[in-house]
């Protein structure tokens, strides 16, 4: 348990000190995106990695959070924090209600149903022009502010977003090491046995689905208030797939893996500007290769790879002897 605390404190220190090393607004801005993506990957990982239930509609919940925040503040002048809270509550409740029928489905059916849900939400963003501004988007969303500090530049946004990231990672770490986390992993391993032990698998899956949606909505609100502009294109099916890719690459059922996956998939396109839109080829290849050769993601796969290489190196001389 203590090791967990140390690991987390090291992360906190890195996050705090990072801006000392990088000052350029551009990089800080990328790091803001890493943060938002980490929250989203984390939310999905609770569902996909721990409970073993896929969702291909996460971008929809992310978008709902962003649009609820955006519409309430830009159109109706609500306080941004209040709008964020409302978005989180509304999306959590919505996911809770729809979770009951949707999580009855398993495997491929669940994937298709969540995908359908995500696309319906996306179509609404495009078509409810009066509220959302349609395909051209919604602008004029105010920044968040706290006691006179307005979060309007890259550095401030960096600290704002990463406070939320660390908070949600901390909460998630606690959750997965608790009775709830145990029950989730148990459902993943054997749902029948978990039920026989008295775990209400269905309710728990719905709860975690709702939590995951709510956390995505908070990330959406943060996105809206830092960008001050939202458009449907950010919340389509492709982004849902990108989130799944982050989780798979980082590592299923690993909180730190979510951070790793989000960071890699956010930084990679920035580093490889030449890819432009062809990054989907890279995503596709990554998904296939990781599923085939490293189903535990980088967090588990890389140490396993190292120990495999090491044991092979050790064995070779003895085989000759």
């Amino acid at each position: 348990m203590n090791r967990e605390v140390y690991k987390f404190l090291v992360l906190v220190a890195i996050v705090l000190l990072c801006p000392l090393a990088v000052h350029e607004g551009y990089i800080l801005n990328v790091l803001v995106f890493v943060g938002i993506h980490t929250m989203l990957a984390l939310a999905l990982n609770l569902l996909l990695g721990y409970a073993g239930q896929i969702s291909l509609g996460q971008a929809g919940f992310f978008g709902l959070g962003a649009y609820i925040s955006g519409i309430l503040t830009a159109t109706h002048g609500v306080n941004p924090w209040l709008a964020m809270g409302e978005g989180a509550v509304v999306v959590t409740l919505l996911a809770f209600l729809i979770g009951f029928p949707i999580l009855k489905l398993k495997g491929h059916y669940l994937a298709m149903a969540t995908l359908g849900l995500g696309i319906i939400i996306y179509i609404v963003f495009n078509e409810a022009v009066d509220q959302t501004g349609g395909p051209s988007g919604l602008s004029g969303i105010p920044n968040l502010s706290l006691g006179g500090i307005i979060f309007d530049n890259d550095l401030k946004n960096y600290y704002l977003i990463w406070t939320f990231v660390l908070l949600s990672m901390g909460l998630a770490l606690n959750l997965v090491h608790s009775r709830i986390g145990r029950a989730l992993r148990a459902i993943h391993d054997s749902e029948v046995a978990a039920r026989v032990m008295g775990v209400n698998a269905r309710l728990l899956k719905v709860q975690i689905f709702a939590l995951s949606a709510g956390l995505s909505a908070v990330a959406g609100s943060l996105y809206a208030h830092t960008m001050t502009f939202v458009a449907p294109a950010s919340f389509g099916f492709n982004f849902s797939v990108e989130l799944v890719t982050m989780v798979i690459i980082g590592g299923l059922a690993s909180i730190y893996g979510s951070l790793l996956g989000a960071a890699l998939l956010t930084l990679l396109p920035e580093l490889l500007r030449a890819f432009q839109d062809y990054d989907i080829i890279v995503y596709g290849l990554l998904l296939i290769i990781m599923t085939m050769y490293m189903p535990g993601g980088l967090v588990k796969g890389v140490p396993a790879l190292f120990s495999a290489i090491r044991s092979r190196l050790k064995r070779k001389p003895s085989a000759h002897a």
Partner: peptide, 22 residues
């Protein structure tokens, strides 16, 4: 597993789409 099959066919589909675009 159903999950890995979902993911691998999604991976394959976006790969094919990407190549077609390329």
């Amino acid at each position: 597993t159903p999950l890995s099959l979902v993911i691998i066919t999604i991976g394959g589909s976006i790969l094919i789409r990407g190549i077609a675009m390329l």
